[in-house]
Design a protein around this nucleic acid. Structure first.
Lengths: 206, 206
DNA sequence: AGCATTCTTAAACAAATGTTTAAAAAGAGT
DNA sequence: ACTCTTTTTAAACATTTGTTTAAGAATGCT
C-alpha cells in the first residue's frame, strides 16, 4: 500500500518548518514542496489545500504551545509548585522552540485563517481543577487577590514575549545571539523570583 | 504644482492601516490602492515600490513604538519615577494602538524586509544617560542588581505581550472584548506594583 | 504474471501579484 | 490660449500564486 510510510510525515515536517519561519502569507506551496524535495501536486494529494495543511500544522503547534502549561495544571501539586514548574518548563521549552510563540500569536491575530481553538482545550483547562485550587489558595490567604486569568497573562507575558522580541532586543542593544540567549536565561531567573514573590504572600494572615 | 497636497499623505495613511492589520505579506498593493480609492500606479508614482512604501511606514511605526520610552528616559526625573511613568504611558499608548506591538515585532522577526534600525535610535537611548542613572541607583543600593537590558525585557514583556495576545486570551477564556480590555487594565495595575516593588529595594542598606 | 489501487510527477490552468507604459487630466506660469 | 510640468488613470507586462488534470510509476493482491 504505502511505498514510503513517511511521505505524509515528511510533508508535514517541511510545512511546519516553512510555515513556522515564514508564516502562512509569507510562503508559497512551492516553497514547501521544494523543502520536501517534491512538487506541489503531492501536497494537494495528501492535504486538500494550502489552508487545510496550515490548519493541521497550526493545530499541532497550538497543542505544543499549551502543552506544558496544561500538563502542570493537571498534575497533583501545591499551587506554588505548579506555578514554579510552569515557568521552569515553559521557558526551557521555548528556549528550544523560540519561533513558536510568534507563529501562534501572529497566526491568531491575522484572522484570515480560521483558528481551531477547540472547546476541548478550553474545557480541559477548567477540568484540571486549577480554578478551584486557585480560589482555595486565595481564600486561605496564601495567594494575592488576583484572578487566574490575570495570573496567566502575567506568566505568559514573561515566558513568551522575550522569545518574540529576540531580534528587536538584539538590534536595540547591538548584541550578538549568544548575549541575547544569556539575557534570556537571566530573565528566567528574575522573573521566577518576581512572580512567585508577588503572587504568594510570605507571611499569611499576619 | 500640487493639485491636492494630501494625496501622498492619504496613501501613507491607507498603507499604514492596511500594513498594520494585514502585514506586509498579507496584503497586496491593490488592497492599499482600494483603501485610498485610487489605483496601483499612483502608489508607485509616489513611492517606488511596495517594499519602499513599507519601509517608510515601518520606520514611522517603529518611532511611535519606542517614543514614550525614549521620552521618559530623556526626562529629568528620579529613576523610580521614570520607570513608573514608562509603564503608565506605554500601557495607555498601546491601549490606543493595540496592533502596534505585533506589527513591529512580526515585521522584525520576518527578516525578508530589511529593518531600518537607525543607529541614531540606539545611540539616543545611550545618550539619555539612563545607563549611568541606573548604575548609580544600583551602587546606592536603591535598585536590585539587575542589568538595564533585563529591566527593559521585563517592562516590555508586560507592556507589549498582553496586547499581542488579546485574541488568544479571548479565545482561551471565551470572553468578549470588553472583558479582555478589563483584564488589560487590571494587568496594568498589578504589573506596575509588581515590577516597581521587585526592582526597588524598599529598605535600602538595611 | 496480470490487474487494481495507490502514489508521484510534469504540465497546464485561471487568478493574483508587483511593476511599468503610455496617454489623459489637471495645474502653473506666461 | 498656449506650453510645460505634475498628477492620475487604464491597460498591459511578466511572474508567481493555489489548484487541477492526466499520465506515469510503484505497490499490493490474487
Amino acid at each position: 500500500m504505502k511505498r514510503d510510510l513517511s511521505t505524509e510525515e515528511k510533508i508535514k515536517a517541511a510545512a511546519r518548518k516553512v510555515f513556522m519561519t515564514k508564516g502562512f502569507d509569507g510562503c508559497s506551496v512551492r516553497d514547501i514542496a521544494k523543502e520536501v524535495g517534491s512538487n506541489v501536486a503531492l501536497l494537494n494529494y495528501y492535504f486538500r489545500s494550502k489552508e487545510k495543511l496550515f490548519e493541521l500544522i497550526f493545530e499541532g503547534a497550538m497543542s505544543d504551545f499549551l502543552q506544558s502549561m496544561m500538563a502542570v495544571f493537571s498534575s497533583d501539586r501545591p499551587l506554588k509548585e505548579k506555578l514554579e514548574l510552569i515557568i521552569d518548563q515553559e521557558f526551557d521549552f521555548f528556549m528550544e522552540h523560540p519561533e513558536l510563540p510568534m507563529f501562534i500569536l501572529h497566526s491568531i491575530q491575522q484572522k484570515n485563517v480560521k483558528i481551531p481553538m477547540p472547546r476541548e482545550v478550553v474545557n480541559s483547562i477548567a477540568n484540571t481543577g486549577i480554578f478551584e485550587q486557585f480560589e482555595e489558595a486565595k481564600k486561605k490567604g496564601e495567594v494575592r487577590d488576583i484572578s487566574l486569568r490575570n495570573t496567566i497573562i502575567l506568566i505568559m507575558s514573561n515566558m513568551h514575549y522575550p522569545f518574540m522580541s529576540k531580534n528587536l532586543h538584539k538590534a536595540l542593544h547591538q548584541i550578538d545571539d549568544q548575549q541575547v540567549n544569556n539575557d534570556l536565561l537571566i530573565h528566567k531567573k528574575y522573573v521566577t523570583e518576581m512572580i512567585i514573590n508577588y503572587l504568594f504572600i510570605t507571611n499569611p494572615k499576619a
